[in-house]
C-alpha cells in the first residue's frame, strides 16, 4: 500500500500527458457528443439580445484574435454569424488584431455563402487597423476616415451597404471576439461607456473571469466564455426552429473531450492529494 501511494505521488509527468491526450483523442475518435444544456447564463443573455434585434439592424463585429486562439473563438464567430445572417442583420467586420481580419473574412464569406448572403450588400470586412482604444474613439467621429477602403482595397464609396454608416453610433451593437488586449475592455471603455453603443462578445476562457464584473453592471449585454460559451451559442442557434437540420459545430463536438479531460484532471488532483496526505501521515507530519 505504502509503495503504491509513493508511486502515485511520484507519477511520471509523461503518464499524465498520455492520459490527457487519450482523454481528448478517444471521445473525438468515437464522435461522442454530450448534452450541453444552456441555463440562464451570459451566453443566453447575448443570444437573446441578438435575437431581439429587428431584421435590417446593423452589427459591427470585431475579430480581435489570431490563429493561436482559433479553437475557442472561431466557432463563436461561425455561430454568431449564422445567427446574425439568419435574422437578416447587416454585419460589418473589422479587426483590432492583424490576423483577425483574414480569419473574420474567411468566417463571413463561408457562413454568408451558405446562407445566400451577398458581400457588400449584407456583409463586408473593413480589415485591420492599429491603435486599439484610440482608433475606437476615432470611429466615434467618423468610420470612413479610419477605413477609407475595405480589406480588399475597395473604396468606401463603392460599397453600397456602407452608405448607411458614418459613425460608431449608427450600429445597433458591437460584438467583439477578444483574445486579449485590445479587445472587449477597449470596446466597453470607448464604444460602450463613451458613445453608448451596446457591447457583447466572446473571449478566451483565460480572460472570461475578468469580464464577469462588466456583466453585472450592464456594460456587457452578454458574454461567451471559451469553448463552453461557443458550444452554448452553437446549441442556442441550432435549437431555433429555423435551424432544423443544421450541422453541429466544432465547439459542441469539443465539449465531450473537454468534459472527459476535466474528469481525468480532477481524478489526478484527488490522487495527488491522497498521496500527499498519506505520505505526510506515514511520516507523522499530520496533526
Amino acid at each position: 500500500m505504502a509503495g503504491m501511494i509513493e508511486k502515485m505521488g511520484n507519477l511520471d509527468r509523461r503518464i499524465i500527458f498520455i492520459l490527457i491526450a487519450l482523454s481528448v483523442i478517444i471521445p473525438l475518435a468515437l464522435g461522442l457528443i454530450f448534452p450541453n444544456p444552456v441555463g440562464a447564463e451570459p451566453s443566453r443573455a447575448l443570444f437573446d439580445y441578438v435575437e431581439a434585434l429587428p431584421a435590417g439592424s446593423s452589427v459591427l463585429l470585431s475579430f480581435d484574435y489570431d490563429p493561436s486562439t482559433m479553437p475557442e473563438l472561431q466557432p463563436m464567430a461561425m455561430a454568431m454569424l449564422q445567427h446574425l445572417f439568419r435574422n437578416d442583420v447587416k454585419v460589418v467586420g473589422m479587426a483590432l488584431w492583424p490576423m483577425g481580419a483574414s480569419l473574420g473574412q474567411d468566417a463571413m464569406s463561408s457562413v454568408g455563402d451558405s446562407l445566400g448572403k451577398v458581400q457588400y450588400e449584407d456583409w463586408c470586412m473593413l480589415g485591420y487597423k492599429t491603435g486599439g482604444g484610440v482608433m475606437i474613439v476615432r470611429l466615434g467621429s467618423g468610420i470612413q476616415a479610419v477605413f477609407p477602403t475595405d480589406k480588399d482595397n475597395v473604396p468606401w464609396s463603392e460599397i453600397p451597404m456602407l452608405a448607411a454608416y458614418s459613425t460608431l453610433q449608427d450600429f445597433d451593437m458591437v460584438l467583439s471576439l477578444s483574445a486579449g488586449d485590445p479587445g472587449i475592455p477597449a470596446w466597453i471603455m470607448m464604444a460602450g461607456d463613451r458613445f453608448g453603443v451596446p457591447i457583447g462578445g466572446g473571449c478566451t476562457a483565460v480572460s472570461a473571469p475578468q469580464f464577469y464584473p462588466y456583466l453585472g453592471t450592464g456594460q456587457l449585454v452578454g458574454l461567451l466564455g471559451g469553448l463552453k460559451g461557443a458550444a452554448d451559442y452553437e446549441t442556442l442557434v441550432r435549437e431555433h426552429p429555423d435551424a432544423v437540420g443544421a450541422e453541429g459545430g466544432r465547439a459542441v463536438a469539443g465539449m465531450a473531450p473537454q468534459s472527459v479531460a476535466h474528469l481525468v484532471i480532477m481524478l489526478l488532483i484527488v490522487m495527488g492529494n491522497v498521496a500527499y496526505f498519506a505520505e505526510k501521515k506515514r511520516k507523522g507530519g499530520v496533526k
Binding site: I20, A21, V24, I25, L28, A29, S68, T69, M70, P71, E72, T204, A205, V206, A208, P209, G225, G226, L227, K228, R250, A253, G254, P257, Q258, A261, H262, I265
Partner: peptide
Amino acid sequence: ASFGYTIMARLSLLIGQSQFLM
C-alpha cells in the same frame, strides 16, 4: 474559478489541434 477557466482554455487548444490532426 479563474484557474479552472485557464485549464479549460488550454484544453480547448489541445482539442482544436487534435481535431485538426484527426
